[in-house]
Each structure stands twice: as C-alpha cells, then as structure tokens.
Design a protein around this nucleic acid. Sequence first.
DNA 1: GTGAAAGCGCTAACAG
DNA 2: CTGTTAGCGCTTTCAC
Lengths: 338, 338
Amino acid sequence: MKKITIKEVAKEAGVSIGTVSRVFNDYPDISEETRKHVFEIANKVGYSPNLAARALSSKRLKTIALVFNDLVYQPKYTFPMSILNGVLDYAESQNLEFAFYAITTQKQKEKTYEQFCSERDVTGVIMQGLHQNDPYIEQLKTTRVPTVLIDMPVNDNQCVGSITTDNVTAAKDAVDVLIKGGYKNIDMMNGTYDATVSILRERGYKKALTDAGFEVNSSLIQYANYDEQIANLMAKQALQQNPTIDAFFCASDIMALGVLQALKDVGKKVPADVGVIGFDGLDLGAYVSPALSTVAQQPYEFGREAGRLIQELTDGPQPETTIERHVPYNLIRRETTR
Amino acid sequence: MKKITIKEVAKEAGVSIGTVSRVFNDYPDISEETRKHVFEIANKVGYSPNLAARALSSKRLKTIALVFNDLVYQPKYTFPMSILNGVLDYAESQNLEFAFYAITTQKQKEKTYEQFCSERDVTGVIMQGLHQNDPYIEQLKTTRVPTVLIDMPVNDNQCVGSITTDNVTAAKDAVDVLIKGGYKNIDMMNGTYDATVSILRERGYKKALTDAGFEVNSSLIQYANYDEQIANLMAKQALQQNPTIDAFFCASDIMALGVLQALKDVGKKVPADVGVIGFDGLDLGAYVSPALSTVAQQPYEFGREAGRLIQELTDGPQPETTIERHVPYNLIRRETTR
DNA sequence: GTGAAAGCGCTAACAG
DNA sequence: CTGTTAGCGCTTTCAC
C-alpha cells in the first residue's frame, strides 16, 4: 500500500505542510477557507496522520495502555475480557488513544517498567494480573509513569492508583450469608496464599466468623490456587478430615464449581447438607444447578473506573495522596445457600 | 520519566549512534568487542529502542494487528478472548510485534481500511467480527494490506486469507446426530439471516435433512439474532405453531441456552421429548443441566492459525490463489441429545 | 568496523 | 494567517 503523507496533501492543496499539520491539530489561527480546503483534499487522497510520527514529534499525544500480565488461556475466567471491554468503552467515549499489551513475569525481568513504557510511548497504564513478587511491583513504588493497578493495592506512590472490590467487606458479607443460613462449620476454599485478594478475602472470612462468635480454625482453610480441579480434590479431603463441615466459602466461582462437584461426588445435598458461596459473579454460576450463590464483582466497571482514574492521573494535578477506589459488589443469593 | 535515547548510550559508550543502532539491529559488521560493550552500557542505563521512531525510520519493522469489530460486552461469549489468546501466544512464539485494536462499523465509515493501517503502521492484520455489509468488506476486495479474516470468507484477493470452521459440514454433522437420535421434526434456531456463518450453517442443516430424505420446511427455521432471550421466545412460539417439533439445531450455544430454558418453561423433557444441539462449544454448555451437546469450534486455534497465516502472507511470496483454511471442530455429545 | 549525515512523517517554535 | 525550519529517536546509505 502506498503511504499517503502530509506532503502529498500539502502539495495537492497548494499549502505548506505546516498548514496541513495545523489544520489536523485544530489550531485556531487557520482561515476557515483553507481549513475546509485542506480537509477536502485530505479526504480525497485518503490521508490519515501517522501516529508513530506524531508520537515522535509531539509531546502531547497521549496513549493509555491496558496491560495484562500472565494472561493464560482460561475461557471460563471472563474477568479479563470484561475489564478490556470496560476500558475500551471508556477510552472510546473520551477519545483516548488506546493500546493493549500482554506481558509475562518473564518479560518483566527482561525489561524494566520504565523501559516498557518509553519503548511504546505510553503516557499511562492500566495494569492487571500482576503477582505479589513480580519485578514490576517493586519498580512501581518509584515510577513516574501514571499507573492504575487493578485488584492490587498500591505502594503509596501518588502516581499509581488502584481499583478494587472491597474484598474484606465483600468476603465478610458472603460468609455472613452462610452464617445467617444457619451453617456452623464454614470452610474457606482460598486461592493462592500469597495473592493480595486471597489475603483480604481470608481476612473478611475470619472477621465474619469472629464477629459471629465462632472460632477460627485454620485447618478449615485450604489453598487451591484458584483452580477448579484442585478445589475439587481439596474439598473432598477437607470433608473427610472434617465431616462436620457444612459450608464452603470459596474465594472464586471457578473453585466453587469444583467444590460443588466434590459435594455431588460424595453425595452431599446442596444447600440442605452443605452451603456454598462463591466469589466473582461469573455468568457460569447462574447456569449450574444448583445455581451458585456468589458475591459478584463488576469487572466491566473496573475497566471503566480504571480508565477514569488513569485519565485523572495523566491529565490532572498530582493527587495529594494515593488514590484507591472501590467498585461496588453485589451479593447474589441463588440456590447453593439457604 | 526521563527518556533514555540512543544518544545517551552512544555518548556513554563512546561510539556513534550509528554503531549503537547497528548493535541493536544485529548487523554482522560489528566487532564482538564493541557489541558487548554497547549492550553493557545500554543495559546499565536502561535503554530500549523507541518503537515509534523505529517504525518511522525503518521499512522493515513488522507489526501485526488483531482487530475486533463491534466487540460488545457479552461475557458469556468467550470466543473473542480465546482468539486473542491464540494470536497472542503465536505472536509471542514468533517474536512478532503485536498490536490490538477495537473498531466499530461507525469507525469504518470515518476512515478507510488503508488509512487505518497506514495510520498505525501495521503490516498485517487479523480481523474478527466483520459484518456482511461493513464498509471494510468492500475495501478488502482490493486492499494490498495482508489480512486474514476470521469466520468470514474472502473475496478472491490473494492478499487476504481466511480462517474458519467448515461450517456447512459441521452443521450437517450436528443435525445428523439429531437424525440418528431418531428425531424427526428438526427445527433450526439460526442467528442473523445475513451473516455468513448463519447461511453456511443453514446450508448444512438443509443438506443433512435432504440427505436423510426429510423435507426442508422453512417455517421450521427462525432467526434469533444469536440472542439468548430472543431464542427463548422464538422457540416457544415455534413449538406452539408446530407442536410436532422434536429437536432444535441451534446456530450458537448461547441461543441453545435460551431454547433449553424455553423447553423447561413449557415442560418438555430433554432429551426424551425434544433434542437440542448447539454450536460453538462454550464451556458454559458443559455446566448446564442437562449438559448441552454441541459442535465445538476451536477459537484459540483460530487465533494461532490466523497468526501463522498472516505471517505467511506478510513474509512469504504472494500466494497463487486465495487461502482459506479450516480448523477442525469436535462434535460433543452430552445430555441434550439421545 | 565505524562515523557522518540524510531522511522517515510529523509538530512546534519562529518569522513575516 | 501561513511558510520555513529545527528537531523527535532511530535506521541506513555513503565514505573513510
């Protein structure tokens, strides 16, 4: 394909390239006449300013990037797609230049966060899927690149904000549902023990128990790595060691699915014998039977909020203090709880 | 953040920027000594070549783009994410520069396909979600930009290839399952009447019927726009008008879900009274009960194949003839068919 | 083997 | 209001 550059347009329109540039950048001091004429010609020859050139020569082209870390092929886990949709829609609504990138922990080791950003001229990034020990976590403490972390707390750097569900409260609410349902021996099927959300949800679980006057029994907490199969196995094992367990609070819906299957496998009735509540609000949960009770997060809103925040961070003044925003969650009571 | 440019590295290393550039571009005529030295310095100061500048000055930086058209927020529909994963993994494995973009039919009207591509310096694009009447469809007939279409036939332009499931055969296979199950009055819940895949799947449906010696009755075909709710309504209506219907072939799993619900609503037993088979192979189908029989496409493989093909198209010689590749599908018999 | 210099397409002073 | 020109950061001849 033949590239149409600003020169072609300038020549064709009989003006200088400077003028064409001004027209395309909405400079005020251009006669209405030439503006129109230039646009006409540009349209005729099919001209579109090259973004790379623009980024190079201008200091004011802003592009915000959404970056997913360690995105693995897991179709059931629809969170990333929802987040993507959210920031996409927001970027679109604000006419922001948007870019998407996928990285891995490995890549983080090969290139620093600042390098990654300067390489691609991003002015702000929305980051999802970072792990506790990723190299970028450390670098994020001192970076000057406006960043918003999704589902991960920030390290008091004013440049970086965060968007999360209030995991502690949400988890407590979920466990409260179980408690109010009359379940007495509530197990927690947690994810990875060192993930922030796991820690927070576990805190909520314990708080609910304590507040209700129950004992917290650490043998009633398993870590199934957010994996359906492992959760299935661990649930069976827990049930065997602790036959009095009559409810499971799962740190993710995917694990809840595994637990539900385990219950089916060992012949327990849900929600009569044992109650189950998940976390996330995947659509999947509404289709299984019995339908899964859960605390639904709003990943699409995460995306929108993240977009809003990154825009504030890149355009507005430096905030006085680190910004952490919660997006609301919904307790959904379906058929796995009484 | 302070940008580290090639200049810094050159100065620090005591060589010219040309040399640094050569080192980073693996030119052979560089002494091993300076090569090492330059890399060392670059590493020390945290230098990473700027991609925009690179794209501008070099004619050989290739970046392939995955573009989704009219991506709407539909978490149940996990196809796009799977495709994304597939091309991401392929691009990663081949070290291809990758970019993702979302467009809309509206945007297609504002900017031509060539403009879109030259604006962002893409050398090849993988396109998903195009509709029959989108402006780009017409422009794709004559474009010189290597393109691969997912789930859409090509218009004999050697620059553009396509990756699809063999929809006709797959649909026929699905209907054959129904026929072999002894169902006699098979309804087809199709999507939009003018989408290519709809047309193809309908063709397969008719072929299966004809081959089996059945009549094709067009009043037994509905168009539910690939929507769960609409499918639900239409199924009920079809059943009312045609009480002898004893099976539904659905052009998508999402619609099959709606049909299943409709059957539940009117008290029909599945698969005893009526059989249902879907199309797509969403994970969701495995969790509903009765579990949905379906023909599973492999969207992740679509992504990988598309990556492979776009690479051939951009690197290899122009193919003699338009390339259309099928990726295999799997007939999954679960509980909604006998 | 390596430096110097001419662009790549565009923006942003600086004149006029 | 508009033309001219100096870069932006990098690649790529062309010399030496």
